[in-house]
């Protein structure tokens, strides 16, 4: 894949495995990444690993815990903890595919990214290209202990304006097919998607 001038670096890898990885960033860098956003890591061999942000974790430590229970905190010290202190925000990412020699695959990559690799937010062209096929949705539906319906809704809200009406219809059909044996989960997904349609 060619490098896009619009891609925004949002953090660096803390730890990784084939199916998921975690990046860290400072609070001031937290304005761009959002739940369900498509992100990617560029590897040294020029291949790219794609993922969806599944949750964002704000860490604490003893000092923050003390400040929380304190009577009053000057606004300057709130800002100190948000912008100066070395407490990375953790961005948890579900791997949904990779690109090698310009070819996108919705399978897990041969190897995970490495620590300190940079994480980028995908631009519109990237999102359009990666989501043009729906195979990657199976990775989302396989997630355990996560509000899958919320993640799908957040992701579809990002992609829907960039794709055609036909794309969205096919995506919904794909989700229904994949969840045909899990009625409870399917009901929750359809419920939240209907909310998305009324927006």
């Amino acid at each position: 894949m060619s490098a896009s001038p619009k891609i925004i670096p949002i953090g660096k890898l803390l730890r990784a495995e084939n199916s998921r990885f975690v990046a860290g960033c400072r609070v001031k860098e937290l304005e761009t990444p959002a739940l369900g956003s498509l992100v990617k890591v560029k590897l040294e061999d020029q291949s790219e690993i794609y993922g969806l942000i599944t949750h964002i974790l704000i860490n604490d430590d003893n000092l923050v815990r003390q400040l929380v229970s304190g009577v009053s905190i000057p606004s300057e010290y709130t800002a100190d903890n948000r912008y100066n202190r070395n407490l990375p925000v953790e961005i948890h990412v579900l791997t949904v595919g990779y690109a090698q020699n310009g070819q996108i695959a919705h399978r897990l990559p041969p190897r995970p990214p490495l620590s300190l690799d940079q994480l980028f937010l995908c631009d519109d062209a990237d999102v359009r290209q990666f989501t043009s096929q729906h195979g990657y949705l199976r990775h989302i539906l396989r997630l355990q202990d996560q509000p899958i319906e919320e993640l799908l809704a957040a992701h579809f809200a990002q992609v829907k304006p960039l794709q055609t009406t036909e794309w969205y219809k096919t995506a919904c059909e794909k989700v229904i097919t994949l969840l045909r044996d899990d009625y409870a989960q399917l009901t929750k997904v359809l419920d939240v998607l209907s909310e998305l349609e009324t927006e």
Binding site: P74, S75, E76, Y77, A79, D80, R82, Y83, N84
Partner: peptide, 12 residues
């Protein structure tokens, strides 16, 4: 270094 009253993060 903190400028109290500024609302700005301290300089470190």
């Amino acid at each position: 270094k903190v400028h109290f009253g500024s609302g700005q993060p301290p300089m470190i």
